[in-house]
């Protein structure tokens, strides 16, 4: 029963993580990756057999007392998965910190050198190709269309905010 609950929980975490990673927002991306990490850590935890109240140490006495290897494993908790999880947590912590810094840096950069007025105009027209037309007309400085794409995505999420900026 415990194993089933654990499996369901891992599946749920994976599902939620996938949903969040596929969303547009950057914070959702970070949270989704965090859920993935939790799901995998729990899966790792489950690989060490779920035993309760059993020691992680085996000595000569317990081997003799158990009689057979199979009986020994029933009264012994596997400590290795926890060591693996510890390593995985440390690594994923570092990675998450790095991604958060990258996103922070991108926000700081994109806030300054794009053209909110023109972009807001694009979002407000009914022409579905307006975005492409604008891209064609953009100067050399905005060559990196990836960056532009991100900015437009943000605009579609919050058009009203940019319209406010444009009016000012």
């Amino acid at each position: 029963m415990t194993a089933l609950m654990l499996a369901l929980l891992v599946g749920l975490l994976f599902a939620c993580g996938t949903y969040l990673v596929l969303q547009r927002g950057q914070i959702k991306l970070v949270l989704g990756l965090g859920l993935f990490t939790h799901a995998i850590n729990l899966a790792l935890f489950g690989t060490g057999r779920l035993t309760r109240g059993a020691p992680p140490l085996v000595d000569g006495e317990s081997v003799k007392a158990a009689g057979s290897a199979a009986a020994l494993f029933a009264r012994y908790a596997d400590p290795l998965p926890q060591a693996l999880i510890l390593t995985a947590i440390v690594i994923s912590f570092g990675m998450t910190a790095f991604i958060v810094m990258l996103i922070f840096r991108r926000d700081a950069l994109t806030g300054s050198d794009l053209l909110p007025g023109e972009l807001a105009a694009v979002v407000n027209t009914a022409d579905p190709f307006a975005e492409f037309t604008l891209r064609m007309q953009l100067p050399e400085a905005a060559d990196d269309y990836d960056l532009l794409q991100y900015e437009l995505d943000e605009l579609y999420d919050h058009p009203e905010r940019e319209v406010e900026n444009a009016r000012e």
Partner: peptide, 22 residues
């Protein structure tokens, strides 16, 4: 800006690959 942008894609997709390995 383009480095940061490419970096996010690179980091996220490679992280997913590492998770599969783990």
């Amino acid at each position: 800006p383009s480095q940061i942008n490419g970096g996010i894609r690179y980091v996220v997709l490679n992280l997913m690959g590492s998770m599969m390995l783990l």
